[in-house]
Amino acid sequence: MIRILLVRHGETEWNKAHRLQGHSDIELSDSGALQARTTGAFIRAQQPSQAHVSSLVRTQQTFAEFGLDLTPRIWDELREQNLGEWEAPTPPRSATPSRRTSRAGAPAATPPPAGRPTRRCRPG
């Protein structure tokens, strides 16, 4: 039987500040590294034989904190969505929560300025 474990990266300083990261390559915060180490105990118990991470440093740091004797395959295709102008040290006006919430109903129709539109998932 094949088991797939999906783990999101640990917390970053931008996560703490509610800033959108997207393709911005932000490192883990100290608390994010601790989250990853804690999660690593569970992951190690599962004895994975493969690992896959995105090319973003926060995902690679998260994986490193798991303490596995595996070299993960790094995929650009696993990166988060490019959020264009919404990615910024200080969220621009267009990235305020009310604007993001109003766009959530139709993300493909209203991509972020200078960002990548959301792809629709289709049944295989």
Rank of each mutant, 00 (worst) to 15 (best):
35 Q>G: 05
30 D>V: 13
85 E>K: 13
71 T>K: 09
100 R>L: 15
50 Q>G: 11
101 T>H: 12
16 K>I: 10
2 I>W: 15
93 R>C: 14
82 N>D: 14
31 S>N: 14
8 R>D: 03
95 A>H: 05
77 E>V: 09
107 P>H: 03
99 R>M: 10
103 R>V: 13
19 R>M: 01
80 E>Y: 03
21 Q>F: 07
40 G>T: 02
83 L>G: 09
24 S>Q: 15
71 T>D: 11
33 A>P: 01
22 G>K: 02
40 G>W: 06
91 P>T: 06
47 Q>H: 14
2 I>R: 13
44 R>K: 03
99 R>V: 15
1 M>E: 12
98 S>V: 14
50 Q>C: 10
26 I>Q: 00
64 A>F: 02
19 R>W: 01
55 S>V: 05
90 T>N: 07
11 E>T: 00
67 G>D: 04
2 I>P: 15
1 M>N: 12
14 W>F: 08
7 V>K: 02
28 L>M: 01
51 A>P: 11
91 P>Q: 11
12 T>G: 05
18 H>M: 10
75 W>N: 11
9 H>C: 01
29 S>A: 10
63 F>K: 00
67 G>V: 04
45 A>Q: 11
59 T>R: 00
13 E>W: 06
57 V>P: 06
51 A>C: 07
92 P>L: 08
19 R>P: 04
89 P>R: 10
15 N>S: 11
21 Q>V: 07
97 P>K: 00
97 P>D: 07
63 F>Y: 05
83 L>D: 02
95 A>V: 07
79 R>D: 06
6 L>T: 13
62 T>N: 01
65 E>D: 13
53 V>R: 00
92 P>E: 05
75 W>R: 03
106 A>Y: 09
75 W>Q: 06
36 A>V: 01
67 G>F: 04
28 L>V: 05
72 P>C: 04
21 Q>S: 08
1 M>A: 09
25 D>H: 06
96 T>P: 07
2 I>L: 15
80 E>R: 01
36 A>P: 08
15 N>L: 06
52 H>R: 14
26 I>C: 01
82 N>F: 12
64 A>D: 04
52 H>A: 14
82 N>K: 12
48 P>T: 08
69 D>R: 05
80 E>L: 02
21 Q>D: 08
89 P>I: 00
14 W>Y: 08
52 H>C: 06
79 R>F: 00
75 W>P: 06
69 D>H: 00
18 H>F: 09
88 A>I: 10
80 E>V: 07
41 A>M: 14
44 R>T: 07
60 Q>P: 04
